[in-house]
Design a protein around this nucleic acid. Structure first.
Lengths: 210, 210
DNA sequence: CTTGGTTACTTAACAGTGTTAAGTATATTT
DNA sequence: AAATATACTTAACACTGTTAAGTAACCAAG
């Protein structure tokens, strides 16, 4: 079956070429400029060929959204060397904001746009694996903080959601230009950082507040 | 000048008709179904006529976004009768989330979509009046909390941003379906409420924690 | 070696989008 | 009555996602 194996390989190569082209378009020209026709132009196939490798555009965007989570994991790599869970939690927030501000296109796909989630609903996987995994790490860290009496004990799910929401809120308001007219450009990142630091201080019950 | 006055009036009426039609479309069929052609169909004019009353689609969406802020003000009406600024702050968050979840289309326009903000940048007004005003009320309340020693004193701007970000984060993650696979439908609102209550308790230095 | 069928891809079209240049009546002013 | 201004429309441009139908190329069976 060496022949059909090679064909399988070739199919995967074109799939990859489509994703690469999509990536190129959407990193260089932003989300709204990723179109099936432009992808087809780049890989030098007709637009309809794209549909032989992906169900629809949402599925392509879902795949890019997954690549986004991989990229985010790179930002978080050094996180797991941090022993103190409270310091780790703080850094987690910082890295999250850094990733979002430096990769607004990916952030859009991962946490703002509807399209990738629509792909998920169709496939009926009915599981947002990447999101669930990321939230899991956050919950673990918060649980650890509670276990070590670094923050007040409470509902881990609710507190995790609140923590995530705070950093997501900041990043999404920033990249969707809601801070532009309210904070000067040079004060935006400092204000965001201060907001997170404020939260960290306010939850800190260890007595070693920074 | 009675005649030109009547004409002015008529012009305003068509402007209003366009906005009414846009409203109808976007409340009934969602944001992505508001198109110039559909608006034109509803008001029984040709699509190009719309451009005689609005610069472009972004300007129409900006106007709808303003109506959204008015609607939000209605939700907040009873807020200003609350004397205790800490209780008011809590209710502010609750009403904000309630508004967002009950009016996702408006919320989109006000705090998520780029289009309305693009209209603002073109007009060179260079001021997001509605957003600035809303944030102002939040800052006042937080300042009052500090003055009355109900929360720890600190950077009002940063803390206001953090507070806003938390509730915005929750609403936007919810309406963009990021909670769907992570929290069961019936637990979503309670989890969000708990998250806000947690923050309120954690900042409360009055000693009367609920 | 030819036939039949599968695979991979393309052409052409549908139904829509925002936007604009150019044209046409109607009404007002000179 | 002629010139001008107002209000609106037609037709087109350049796009979008998506699909039905058609066409080559290859591959296995008779």
């Amino acid at each position: 079956m060496g022949i059909s194996e090679r064909k399988e390989k070739q199919k995967l190569e074109i799939r990859k070429a489509i994703l690469d082209a999509s990536m190129k378009l959407f990193v260089e020209q932003g989300y709204e400029n990723v179109s099936i026709r432009k992808i087809a132009d780049l890989i030098e196939y007709s637009p309809t060929t794209v549909y032989l490798y992906f169900k629809d555009k949402n599925e392509i965007l879902f795949q890019l959204h997954e690549i986004g989570f991989q990229k985010m994991a790179e930002y978080n790599a050094e996180l797991w060397t941090i022993k103190n869970p409270l310091v780790r939690l703080h850094k987690m927030g910082e890295f999250y904001m850094k990733f979002g501000l430096e990769n607004p296109a990916f952030y859009d796909l991962m946490f703002i746009l509807n399209a990738p989630m629509e792909a998920l609903q169709v496939v009926e996987k009915c599981e947002w694996k990447s999101g669930d995994q990321a939230l899991g790490k956050l919950k673990e860290t918060i649980q650890e903080c509670m276990d070590k009496n670094l923050i007040e004990k409470g509902d881990v799910d609710g507190i995790s959601m609140a923590f995530w929401s705070l950093v997501h809120g900041m990043v999404s308001l920033a990249i969707r230009n809601r801070f532009d007219k309210l904070v000067t450009a040079d004060q935006m990142v400092p204000t965001m950082t201060k907001g997170l630091t404020w939260l960290m201080n306010v939850v800190d019950t260890s007595g070693n507040k920074t």
